[in-house]
Design a binder for these strands. Sequence first.
DNA 1: GAACACAGTTCCGCTGAACGGGACAAGCCT
DNA 2: AGGCTTGTCCCGTTCAGCGGAACTGTGTTC
Lengths: 264, 264
Amino acid sequence: MPEDDKKMAEGLQSVILTMQIVDQVARTGKGVGVTSLATALGTSKSRIHRHLQTLVQQGYVFQHEDSERYEIGHQLVSLGQAVLDNSGLIGSTRDSLLALRDRLGHSAVASQLTPDGMLVIATVPGRSPIEIGVRVGSLLSFHGSAQGKAATAFSSEAFQRRVLTGDLTAFTEHTITDPAKLSAELDEIRRRGWATAPNQAALGLNTLASPILDGSGAVCGTVGIVDLTQSLAAEPGPEHTAAVMETARRISVLMGHSGPLPFG
Amino acid sequence: MPEDDKKMAEGLQSVILTMQIVDQVARTGKGVGVTSLATALGTSKSRIHRHLQTLVQQGYVFQHEDSERYEIGHQLVSLGQAVLDNSGLIGSTRDSLLALRDRLGHSAVASQLTPDGMLVIATVPGRSPIEIGVRVGSLLSFHGSAQGKAATAFSSEAFQRRVLTGDLTAFTEHTITDPAKLSAELDEIRRRGWATAPNQAALGLNTLASPILDGSGAVCGTVGIVDLTQSLAAEPGPEHTAAVMETARRISVLMGHSGPLPFG
DNA sequence: GAACACAGTTCCGCTGAACGGGACAAGCCT
DNA sequence: AGGCTTGTCCCGTTCAGCGGAACTGTGTTC
C-alpha cells in the first residue's frame, strides 16, 4: 500500500463493482439498501440498482419481498459452501483441529500458504468463555505471525530471502522488523519445529504454530493454537509444543507427506 | 421457466460473467485455465482473461505462481465465511443439528424460508457409512419436499394459496401434483407438527421436517433428518417425530420465539 | 391532508469501457 | 526441428452500461 500507486493498473470496473457489492451484501447480516450501497461505494444509485437487479436475477442476492432491502441469495450460500469445501487443507484439518482444541483447550487454527501471506482457512473456538481467535479468511503476514514464521522457516532459501528483504511492517512494538534478527529466529524455529509470535501480530495475543508439509515435501500451511499472551507463554511448555507438532505431523500425512518431518 | 420468456429481461452481462467465473473457479478444487473457462462459458479468451486479471488484482482469485491455473483467492474464502456466518439461522442451529444427529443417527438438515423455496443452510452427516444428505445451498421446492411442506403448512393462508396454485412440477412419480391432495396433506401436517416426503423429492430418499418459528411467530425455516426411504419410514416412529419437533422448538426459542408452538 | 423527505425504480440519449480477433511468447508433446 | 497447446497483449470499433433526472410509493411532519 505505501509504495507503488503510480499507475495502479486498473481492472475492469464492472467486475470490481460487482464484487464490492457482493462483499457488502454478504457482510451485512440484515440487508442493505440501494442508497447506502451507492454512498458507501461512491457511485450512482442507478448503477448499483442495475447491478443488484442482475445479481437478484441470477440468485446471488435476494430482494426482500416487501421491496425493501437486499440480502444474501441462495447462489451465494452455495458458493460460500463450495469455497470452503475446496479451499485446500480444510477437509483434512477440521477433525485434527477439534482434537487439538480438546487436548489443550486453546483455540485451534489452520492456515494455508499463499503468495500474499498465510490464509486462515479453519478455526475452532477454544474452551474459554471469552472468544479468542482469528477470523477465517484473514491474511497473516510472513514476518509478523507465528504461522508466517513457521511456514517461512521451512520454505526454500529463495523464499526466505524474499521475506527477509521484503516489507517488514511493525504491527505492534514487538513485531520483528530487523532482517538479521528475523533470520536468527527462523533458524531457531527450524531447529525446534515450532514458532510463536507473542504480541507481535496484536498486543495481548500469542500464537503457537508448526508447519504442514504436502506430498512433495514443501510447506503448504500451518496448524496452531491462539490465546491471550497471559494464557499462552512465549515459550510454551513441552505438552503444548508436542501437541501442536504432532497435529502438524498427522495433517501432513493426510496431505500425502511421507517420510520424516524435518523436526520433532 | 416454462412460461414468461418473451422478453427475458437480461441483466448486466459483465455482472453475470463475473459471477459465472467466480462460481466456476470456486467449484473447481484444483484450478482452472483461461481456455477451459472460455469454452465452458462460451465467450472469448481475452474477455475471460481480463475479468480474471481483475479478480486476481482484487484478491478474489489467485493465480498460481508458475503462471498456470487460476484458483480461489483469499477474498473469496473470507467472503464464503461471511456468507455462512450471516445466512440467518446458521449460528443457532449447528449445535442442535449435531445433537439431533447423535440422538437418531440420521443426517440432520436445517433449511431457511426464501421466496424461491427452502434454502438448505446447514447439514451434518449421519452415522451410516454411506453419505446421505442434501448439499448446503440447495433450493428445495415448497410442494415437493418435507421442508417445503412443513414450512408452507404453518405459513399464512395467502402463501399457502400461492403454493397450491403455483408450479407443482413432479420430481418423481410420488410427488404430489394435485392441489386438493396437497391441501389435505398440509392440513394433516399442521395437525401433527411434522412433514415427510417419501420418494417425493428424489426416489429412494425420505425426509422428516418440522418448522422453526421466529420472534414474530412466522415460519422462518425447518429442521429435519434425511435418510434412505428404507431407513426412514413414511410414518416415522414417535421417537423420531418427537426428537425433530423438540429440536425445532429449541431452535425456535433461540430465534426469539416465545410462547407455545402451534403443534406438539 | 398538503407538503416534505427519502426510499427504490425507470427512462433515455451519449460515450468511453470493454469487446473481438488476431498476434505473440512460452511450454509441452511428438 | 515442427506442430499444438497454453496464457498474455494490442488496438480500432461499438454497443453495453452510464449519469442524471423524472417517477412512484411510504413514512413523517406540520
